[in-house]
Design a binder for these strands. Structure first.
Lengths: 163, 163
DNA sequence: TAGAGAGTTCGAGCGCACTCCAAGCAAGCG
DNA sequence: CGCTTGCTTGGAGTGCGCTCGAACTCTCTA
């Protein structure tokens, strides 16, 4: 199955500190950024290419406060960093799992406000995790229904093929 | 078309004479019908209550062809049957798992057209099942990211609580 | 120096899945 | 009889998450 494009997700927190080694889960798979730190200045179309988000959407994300401030050239063009890419990959995951944009904006705000918001961030993510778990359960139960019905159709097909 | 729908009945022990006995999966847990077959004439608000769908939505489903023809009283009020309830519970499951309304309308059309459409129905459901499976994978992978981040926040919290 | 191409902003528009509204009809009750 | 409650319709409105267009600037190559 889709092991979605790998992505080092570490933006809400300092991507700086070395990543704590977790036993139960080694964390998101750290896949290389297209450009090494130091030369990580991506144009909007490069980011669009990399993330699959349209340039329009990227600008819109910034407008609504969903991006943590993107650097600009002296003429005002955006230059995204590896850190921005990390953030976008988190955002994309959260979106795909149905977190409303408003909640993500809230989370982005909290990140901007610094360490004092750790507790609320934890809460927000925990709530979303519960959501996700519940949706997985829902999907599984639908899978049962689908299996059941598909079996019936398949049986009918096989029966008709036999004669 | 007055042709009775040929939709594999998936719920209602009481409703059907005999249901196909499946070995691998006994089918979805049949949510019992509030009223026994024969007296199953529900008003729109009863159905709304039972399904959690608003009366507005129920009428809208009918308008767009997502309901297989609902009986009416002599004055034109809708009276839903147990069969309608079963259909709605399938529709609800499909909706919750992200099947577009247009696809469900297509499926409803096929059901109306009778047994000759079994193959296409099977295809449609199989495609959706693939979709659902993929989304489960996606959700699982996000769960990993969430666990990872929540752990970090929790560690920070515990650390700060210690001092 | 001209022209292509990629970037910018702001605001309008779109598709989906509802959600609501206005106006009207029918049944039951005091 | 009037009142309330619950239903009917067609059509307009809403909220979300983009998506697009117009008009303009900047950069690069020939």
């Amino acid at each position: 199955m889709t092991v979605t494009q790998s992505e080092p997700v570490t933006s809400g927190l300092a991507a700086t500190a070395e990543r704590p080694v977790k036993v139960r889960n080694c964390g998101p798979p750290p896949l290389p950024h297209p450009k090494p730190t130091g030369q990580d200045r991506y144009t909007i179309s490069e980011v669009s290419e990399h993330t699959g988000l349209s340039a329009h959407t990227l600008r819109w994300y910034e407008r609504i406060g969903l991006m943590p401030h993107v650097n600009r050239t002296h003429t005002g063009q955006r230059r995204f960093s590896n850190r921005d890419l990390d953030w976008l990959s988190l955002v994309t995951k959260l979106r795909l799992t149905g977190m409303p944009v408003a909640d993500m904006v809230r989370y982005a705000e909290l990140v901007r406000q610094g360490e004092s918001t750790f507790a609320e961030r934890e809460q927000l993510l925990t709530a979303h995790r519960e959501d996700v778990r519940q949706r997985i359960t829902e999907l599984q139960s639908t899978l049962d229904v689908l299996d059941y019905k598909i079996d019936i159709y398949a049986d009918a097909r096989r029966a008709s093929e036999r004669f």
